[in-house]
Design a binder for these strands. Structure first.
Length: 888
RNA sequence: AGGCGCGUAGCUCAGUGGGAGAGCGCUACCUUGACACGGUAGAUGUCGGCGGUUCAAUCCCGCCCGUGCCUACCA
């Protein structure tokens, strides 16, 4: 192996390992195994385009879980795949074609679909490249796509079964129509936005009287489709008009005045409501209650149709609004215009205002499926983390409405329904297999079928993902082993779109919940807290960051920032900081390797007597392992990452490496022990860190491997560290902490009175007891080296020498010889220390003077406060004495 | 309108019913044989405001202010 480079190069290291891991089959899950299964199916990214930084977060979290569990000995399956994303993908391809002046209608269905497949292939290739750049350990052998043959079969199977169970039906209902994409949308695909608009007051003359009934509306153009005016039946102003006819302005139609207590709020507007059952959800219901005709006045692309007077035909709906308002005004029907703010549904994908329209569509009876899905979360079969999302889920599920699943698109699963072509025949065929010559129409006996032109909502197929990807409807071994999936890791923004529907479909078709745990990750925002979006231009391509800082640093940063239930604001500075962490780790390892040149073969702790510093780092290593495991088991990724960071940088590098230098220089068994503990610690660090930073840990672990016994070929399949892997020495570790505190105290004095690092100082210590004296004595070398101390004396009766500074520690008093010229600085330093201690003492004494505190607080707490007070008092006294004797 | 969340150091954010933390930034000193992508030491906070519960509140409760998100067919 080549010598280790002085600085870490992510480009070099990250290019080295991934393909080998895949080729070795480390990511491949066994369909059958003695090991316990652990399964995550990837939330399939859309093949619209590229992965963004949010994907990098979700992939990082999943990979951390999967690599952790793999190293813990589970039979892990992380199943990758992509989603055809019906509307979104069709739209981007249409937009692309439009730039060349071509529409999908110019091409026709077949050729257009060829175009979409081409787009899909390109996007998919890029997505795979991005995933590999992030070093994720998915089982590529099991990759799926929602339009795969197998998944398409699952979709048909589900459709047919639900149809046969009466849970899928076709009906003429009021739906949300996107005039831009010319398809119906589900409720979830409609985004409500507040608009500054107006309330137009329009007068409708009452037939046979000179009374005019004034209605208020936000959509004057729809008056051309009005079929009634409603008033509250108890409204004294209008009740006498109920049953009369009004003349609809701009038309020659007469429409009735009706009374409807449910829809009309007499307080609002004028108290009279125009009813347009063809273009409003409420009005549709009113119309149904009163048997009113439904007039659709708009075409698919929201232009006025032949139901309106000739003058208005062909106008776009917002143009029509202006013309209608102008005409109303000219003809004296416009009473007033009021400024008005209201919310209007917009098409999530295209951004245009959604048009409520009556249309014949396919629906899923959601309530029936929602019941068991609701219970499963209520009784804990599926657990949400963070738990707060359960309430959101309950709320939506309890009020769930039927799910419109047909879409007037070409890209997707075509609905497996065929209509009989015989004139006047209404026979239909619904089947998993296409009908053939032998498939006779049950109504007329003919065998001439035409398939429904529409496709299914993308989420219909996504809802099956946890089992369709495992081979359902076949009873595969994969399904048996990996269903229910262990964890679903996804974003809360698709809790209804996806999670809820997977719950419904999973339980209905598999008889069991699709996953035991749902972990909702945070939303990644930019530094300013803005949601990242292409239109804002603040998206970051993960590939760019991987190129800049490496996948390991990016992954570690994302893990560190992802606190539960909170957004991630990604700052570039922060990523830089963690890139430096990777370099720090690299150099710590480099130090270890540089000091192993006299070693052959594995090193083990057996038969060695670890020195106090060794005992300290081994104990802290064991602490770290316990903390990281606890964090990962509890989905607290930021905590796990920061525990690792603290341990590697601030314990292993800051202290242990420095302490080990002494032992290494000494040679003999001390050197051998230090070498062994260095190897042991680094091994633990690398394995604990591997799920977060797979590449650098593999690189370093491979170099460390000659010194480790009985390990596999790759860290990927090595064991995750466990508590108890290394021996603990709690007492010794605590004693060592005192040594470290003493060194810090000496450094603090030096720095504050400005003794330059090049100058050595003498130190005299009065220990608090013989044990303290003993272990300080044992570490005189370390204290000398790390504190830059030349004479180090421990004396139970020591007095402060002239020209010495004083540091008071709980376990010792420490005099640092700084020279007479720095006495002024020392006095200042002491006064500052005194002030700080006094402030602390004040707070403590306030508590102790409170009889209720002594009375009611737990004994331990009171004791602790007393001890604290005594220590502070003692310290202040000593510091005071020092100041006095220095003449301050 | 209802629901959920957030407000902690200059910035980005952790955290806990008993002495306020991290990273970055900032200040001083240091080319100490792993690392200047570094080392050592340090400064910085009415923990949004007002009340309440408690011996004790940054943490629990209420109200208010600011801010973000989700759900919702009042013209």
């Amino acid at each position: 192996m080549e010598p280790i480079a002085k600085g870490y190069s992510h480009r070099e290291v990250e290019a080295r390992w991934y393909d080998g891991w895949v080729d070795a089959g480390y990511f491949h899950a066994e369909a059958q195994s003695d090991k316990d299964p652990y399964c995550i199916v990837i939330p399939p990214p859309n093949v619209t385009g590229h992965l963004h930084i949010g994907h990098a977060l979700t992939l990082t979290i999943q990979d951390v879980l999967i690599r952790y569990k793999r190293m813990c000995g589970f039979n892990t399956l992380w199943l990758p795949g992509t989603d055809h994303a019906g509307i979104a993908t069709q739209m981007v391809v249409e937009r692309d074609l439009a730039a060349k002046g071509v529409s999908r209608f110019d091409l026709g269905r077949r050729k257009f679909l060829d175009e979409v497949w081409r787009w899909k292939d390109a996007a998919h290739a890029h997505i795979v490249k991005q995933m590999k750049a992030l070093s994720i350990s998915v089982d590529w052998d099991r990759e799926r796509f929602t339009l795969d043959e197998g998944l398409s079969r699952a979709v048909r199977e589900v459709f047919v079964r639900l149809y046969e169970e009466g849970l899928i039906y076709r009906a003429q209902k009021m739906v949300n129509w996107s005039p831009a994409i010319r398809t119906v949308l589900s409720d979830l695909e409609v985004e409500e936005k507040e608009l500054e608009s107006h309330l137009w007051h329009i007068a409708y003359p009452v037939e046979g009287t000179d009374v005019r009934l004034v209605v208020a509306t936000t959509r004057p153009e729809t008056m051309l489709g009005d079929t009634a005016v409603a008033v509250h039946p108890e409204d004294e102003r209008y009740r006498h008009l109920i049953g009369k006819q009004v003349k609809l302005p701009l038309t020659d139609r007469l429409i009735p005045v009706i009374g409807d207590a449910e829809a009309v709020d007499p307080e609002f507007g004028t108290g009279a409501l125009k009813i347009t059952p063809g273009h409003d959800f409420t009005d549709f219901e009113v119309g149904r209650r009163h048997g009113l005709p439904v007039i659709s006045i708009l075409t698919e692309d929201a232009h006025l149709n032949d139901e309106v007077p000739p003058k208005y035909r062909g106008l776009e709906r917002f143009e029509a609004r202006e013309v209608v308002v102008r005409d109303l005004e000219e003809q004296g029907f416009l009473v007033s215009i009021e400024d008005y703010k209201h919310v209007v549904g917009h098409c999530q994908r295209s951004g245009v205002v959604v048009e409520p329209t009556v249309s014949l569509q396919w629906f899923v009876k959601a309530k029936t499926l929602a019941g068991p899905a609701l219970d499963a979360v209520r009784n804990g079969d599926t657990v949400f983390i963070p738990k707060t999302w359960e309430k959101t889920y309950f709320n939506w599920m309890e009020n769930i409405r039927d799910w419109c699943i047909s879409r007037q698109l070409w890209w997707g699963h075509q609905i497996p329904v065929w209509y009989c072509r015989s004139p006047g025949c209404e026979g239909i065929y619904v089947g998993v297999e296409d009908p053939d010559e032998s498939t006779k129409c049950p109504a007329c006996g003919a065998a001439d079928w035409k398939q429904d032109e529409d496709v299914l909502d993308t989420w219909f197929s996504s809802a099956l993902w946890p089992f369709s990807t495992l081979g359902w409807p076949d009873e595969t071994r994969e399904l048996k082993t990996f269903y229910p999936n262990t964890v679903m890791e996804t974003g809360f923004d698709i809790i209804f779109f996806w999670v809820a529907r997977m719950m419904m479909m999973g339980i209905h078709f598999m008889g069991e919940v699709p996953f035991g745990t749902v972990y909702f990750h945070a939303m990644v925002r930019d530094e300013a807290g803005q949601k990242m979006s292409k239109t804002k231009g603040n998206v970051i391509d993960p590939l760019e960051l991987v190129d800049e800082v490496g996948a390991d640093a990016l992954r570690f940063t994302l893990a560190t920032l992802t606190a539960q239930g909170r957004d991630v604001k990604l700052s570039v500075d922060r990523i830089q900081g963690y890139r430096e962490f990777v370099n720090k780790l690299w150099n710590a390892a480099r130090f270890v390797f540089m000091n192993l040149d006299d070693v052959e073969g594995p090193l083990t702790l057996d038969g060695l007597k670890p020195a106090p510093a060794d005992r300290w780092i081994l104990t802290r290593l064991d602490d770290m392992v316990a903390a990281v495991r606890g964090a990962l088991d509890g989905f607290r990724f930021n905590e796990g990452a920061s525990v690792l960071y603290q341990f590697v940088w601030h314990r292993f590098c800051d202290w242990y490496l420095e302490l080990a230098k002494g032992a290494l220089a000494e040679g003999g068994p001390r050197r051998r022990t230090a070498q062994t503990v260095l190897v042991t610690s680094l091994d633990g660090i690398l394995r604990a860190l591997h799920p977060f930073m797979p590449n650098v840990t593999e690189e370093l672990w491979q170099r460390l491997k000659p010194f480790l016994a009985g390990r596999p070929d790759s860290i990927v399949v090595d064991a995750y560290p466990m508590t108890g892997d290394v021996p603990r020495f709690d007492e010794d570790a605590r004693a060592m902490d005192e040594v470290l505190d003493l060194i810090s105290a000496v450094r603090g004095v030096r720095s504050q009175v400005q003794v330059p690092p090049s100058e050595q100082v003498g130190v005299l210590v009065r220990p608090g007891g013989p044990e303290v004296a003993a272990h300080l004595d044992m570490h005189r070398e370390d204290i000398r080296r790390l504190g830059r101390v030349d004479g180090f004396v421990i004396d139970a009766d020591a007095q402060r020498p002239d020209g010495a500074a004083l540091a008071v520690l709980p376990f010792a008093e420490c005099y640092v010889e700084i020279g007479a010229e720095r006495i002024e600085a020392e006095i200042a330093r002491l006064n500052k220390a005194i002030a700080k201690a006094r402030k602390g003492l004040e707070g403590v004494e306030r508590k102790l003077e409170n009889p209720k505190f002594i009375d009611r607080a737990p004994e331990q707490v009171v004791q602790k406060e007393r001890l604290k007070a005594a220590e502070l008092k003692d310290g202040i006294q000593r510091l005071d004495e020092a100041v006095r004797s220095l003449g301050g």
